[in-house]
Amino acid sequence: MTGPDLPERVRAALGDRRTREVKMFGGISFMVDERMVAAARGDGDLLLRIDPARREDLLARPGAHEALMGEGRSMGPGWLAVDEAALTGAGLTEWLGHALDFREPGLKPPASRRRPGVSAPGGAPSPARAPTPPQPVRRLRTEPCRWAWVT
């Protein structure tokens, strides 16, 4: 198994869920129902969004280590990285299961981040605020210039 193979394996493991892929975290991140679940990094590691309450238990498993941003900066208790070697066989499905469990299936997808008054995907204005009326057009001066450069 190689690093570039990991995104295809994650796609297959997520199956028919509503997913979206975004390039970030040094690889391809997988969003399920608009929530970040995992990222297949270019180095072959899998970055997971996990329940912070289960962090210590999951860190004790083989192949799991603290997720870092750059040199030595922790990404926080809700993030975990898994070595490529621990993702063989059913390992990938098991680790993705921990990330999918954290999504809290009863919650609705997050609200749109659109600004109030901006059209929604269906074309209707956002209900938060009515669209602002058009502003008057500023006209440029059209009269001739009264001075000229003298050389």
Rank of each mutant, 00 (worst) to 15 (best):
R49K: 12
D57C: 01
A67W: 07
G91C: 06
R49W: 02
L59N: 02
L59H: 02
E84M: 09
A85V: 13
A60R: 15
R55C: 04
M69Y: 13
A40E: 13
A39Y: 07
G106V: 03
G63F: 03
L96S: 02
R41Q: 15
G97T: 08
A86C: 05
L48C: 01
G44D: 10
A99N: 05
R103T: 11
G44T: 05
R61H: 03
R35V: 00
R54I: 00
R35P: 01
D45V: 04
L107P: 05
D45R: 15
W95T: 09
P110F: 04
W95L: 07
R103K: 10
P52Q: 09
G72M: 07
R35E: 00
A64E: 09
G72A: 06
L92R: 00
L92K: 00
A60D: 12
G76H: 04
S112L: 05
R103I: 05
D57G: 07
L68F: 14
A60L: 05
K108Y: 02
H65Y: 10
A111L: 15
A90E: 15
R41Y: 03
A99M: 05
G78A: 13
P77I: 12
E94H: 05
L68C: 04
D83W: 04
E34V: 00
A38I: 11
A81Y: 12
L80Q: 10
G72F: 06
A38E: 09
P105H: 12
R41H: 10
E34P: 00
G63Y: 02
E94P: 00
A53T: 13
D43I: 01
A39P: 01
G97A: 10
L80N: 09
A67H: 06
G97H: 08
L87R: 13
D51Q: 06
V37Y: 11
E104M: 11
M69K: 14
G42R: 15
A60Y: 06
L48S: 01
A60S: 14
L107I: 08
A64L: 06
S74Y: 01
D43P: 02
E84Q: 15
I50A: 04
L87N: 14
E94V: 12
M75L: 15
I50Y: 03
G42T: 14
R49S: 03
P62H: 11
R41W: 05
E34A: 08
G72Q: 12
K108H: 11
A90C: 01
V37N: 11
R55V: 04
L59A: 01
L96V: 00
P77R: 15
A67Q: 02
L47M: 08
E84Y: 03
A81G: 05
G91W: 08
G97K: 07
A85R: 15
E94Q: 14
P62I: 12
D45P: 00
D57Y: 12
P77A: 14
P109S: 10
R49Y: 01
R54L: 06
G97E: 10
A81H: 13
D45K: 14
P109M: 02
P77L: 14
D45T: 15
G89Q: 07
A86L: 08
G91Y: 03
L80E: 10
A81S: 15
R35A: 01
G89K: 07
L80P: 06
A81P: 03
G97V: 06
